[in-house]
């Protein structure tokens, strides 16, 4: 049901029935290392290319999510997935293995919450009993597409991000237990003129702020109604900028404001720069950590705002500025 201008309210109460998260070794050594279902020390995950490794992780995350939901893959009515690679390779190739009806989506690092929002909408509309939302990224396959060869000795600036190696999946369906997906706000594409692909935090911050403000306006709530508002991958540079922009619009988020890119790595880990990014960043932190905190009763209601920079290597080389988008999903604890 449309509430306000951009927000979908889910009245039937679709829930997260199971989640699966698979990460690489750097993520495993981070502060949330023991929260993930599977940590791979081998960056190739036993495969012979980075792309196959990413696909494998996505398959594993999906299988894990379905298993933890107490279902079999055949019970999934529709899978919604996307990733960073051209032609969303990982998502489509993993879907080949799963053999379920598949909708491929792309909104860069905002894919995770776009997938959850769409899955919840399909369950709400009874177009699916069980919908699988999934996404993945791999540091090396992303480096190769968006930056330099992985072993090339180029120096990155402190505003750079570290693309998370991992995959996250969640089964959304009607159920009686589990975290509820109560609403979702679909973001507008916003471009405030940041050009450098090394400054994605600053580029994406306005999109995150726009979606958060719109969500609050649509639902008639204030930031105090949330125990936590968490952005996808603004990291240590973009997150304070978003906080300041929110403050200027009269939303004082205080200590209720976090970021998956900051939560993923320890500040002192080597070569994480300003923090994590990539579709898997928001997916893994949300599914493995934040949803569990909701289940454990630490929070009642949180808003996850996945942020995506919609650039391509061609547009970056043609000196285009970076359009960004943010999709928000509101998760609420257990009963009612």
């Amino acid at each position: 049901m449309l509430t306000g201008k951009q927000t979908w309210s889910f009245v039937s109460g679709p829930r997260i029935l199971g989640t699966g998260t698979v990460v690489g070794s750097k993520e495993g050594r981070g502060p949330l290392g023991d929260r993930f279902d599977l940590v791979h020390d081998d960056p190739y995950v036993g495969q012979d290319s980075w792309e196959k490794a990413e696909c494998k992780m996505l398959e594993q995350a999906q299988e894990k999510a379905v298993f933890k939901a107490g279902l079999s893959m055949e019970a999934i009515d529709v899978a919604i997935a996307g990733d960073l690679l051209a032609q969303i390779t990982s998502a489509n190739f993993a879907a080949r293995t799963a053999g379920r009806p598949m909708l491929g989506i792309f909104s860069a690092c905002a894919t995770s919450m776009q997938a959850v929002a769409l899955a919840a909408a399909l369950v709400e509309a009874k177009a699916a009993r069980y919908a699988l939302a999934a996404t993945s990224s791999h540091n090396s396959s992303a480096e190769r597409i968006f930056r330099f060869p992985t072993e090339y000795g180029a120096q990155k600036p402190p505003t750079a991000h570290c693309t998370v190696t991992g995959a996250g999946a969640a089964v959304v369906g009607a159920g009686i237990t589990g975290v509820r997906v109560s609403s979702a706000t679909i973001g507008k594409v916003i471009d405030l003129g940041v050009q450098s692909p090394w400054e994605m935090g600053a580029a994406m911050a306005p999109a995150a702020v726009d979606t958060i403000v719109q969500h609050l306006k649509d639902t008639g709530r204030s930031v105090d109604d949330y125990d936590l508002i968490v952005t996808g991958d603004l990291a240590r540079v973009g997150h304070p900028i978003a906080r300041e922009l929110l403050g200027r619009q009269g939303h004082d988020v205080q200590d209720r404001f976090q970021d998956c890119g900051i939560l993923m790595y320890d500040e002192h880990q080597p070569e994480v720069f300003s923090g994590g990014s990539g579709p898997a960043c928001c997916a893994c932190v949300t599914f493995a950590h934040l949803l569990r905190q909701l289940e454990e009763g630490e929070y009642r209601r949180i808003l996850v705002v996945a942020t995506g920079a919609l650039l391509s290597t061609v547009t970056a080389q043609q000196n285009e500025t970076i359009p960004c988008v943010a999709h928000a999903v509101c998760f609420e604890a257990g009963t009612s």
Partner: peptide
């Protein structure tokens, strides 16, 4: 308006991002 907003945001960003050491 987007063009104006872009200019204002670029001014706002000055000093808010760490520079290369």
């Amino acid at each position: 308006k987007m063009g104006v907003d872009q200019k204002r945001y670029q001014v706002f960003l000055k000093g808010r991002q760490p520079v290369r050491p």
